[in-house]
């Protein structure tokens, strides 16, 4: 599956990307919400978005809402340094919201699998 990873910190983005590549996904990196939006516009083969929450100018939720408003309903997983519950309440349409920690390599694959199952894709 081709997944767009959005993070303003290249190190963090690469890390998330590496975790996804490890379970066989293909990863495209975007450095902020705008970059993500423009990559999604030109690349229709992207099947999922994994985005950081806290980014300058446009947060992960801003990105999600903008995509949603323009008819893009790809599965969207939000990563955050804070407790994820509050963000899910703030934006319940997210497929999942996940805290960034060292177990990301275990939690992220599970969350993706669950999200896809919920969407009836796997």
């Amino acid at each position: 599956m081709r997944i767009l990873v959005v993070d303003d910190d290249p190190m963090a983005g690469e890390l998330t990307g590496a975790v996804l590549e490890d379970i066989g996904h293909e990863v495209i990196l975007a450095q902020d919400g705008l970059d993500a939006a423009s990559k999604l516009r030109v690349d229709p083969t992207i099947e999922m978005v994994v985005s950081d929450m806290n980014m300058p100018i446009m947060t992960g939720i801003d990105l999600f809402r903008q995509l949603f408003a323009t008819g893009n309903t790809l599965p969207f997983i939000l990563l955050t340094g804070d407790e994820p519950e509050g963000l899910l309440i703030q934006e319940p349409r997210l497929d999942a919201c996940l805290i960034k920690d060292f177990s990301l390599d275990e939690t992220l694959p599970t969350v993706i699998a669950n999200a896809l199952r919920a969407r009836g894709k796997a």
Partner: peptide
Amino acid sequence: HRFLHNLKGTGSSFGFQ
């Protein structure tokens, strides 16, 4: 604030509790 927030996220992701 954003800097510290990012450092927290990235630091935790790399396992530096």
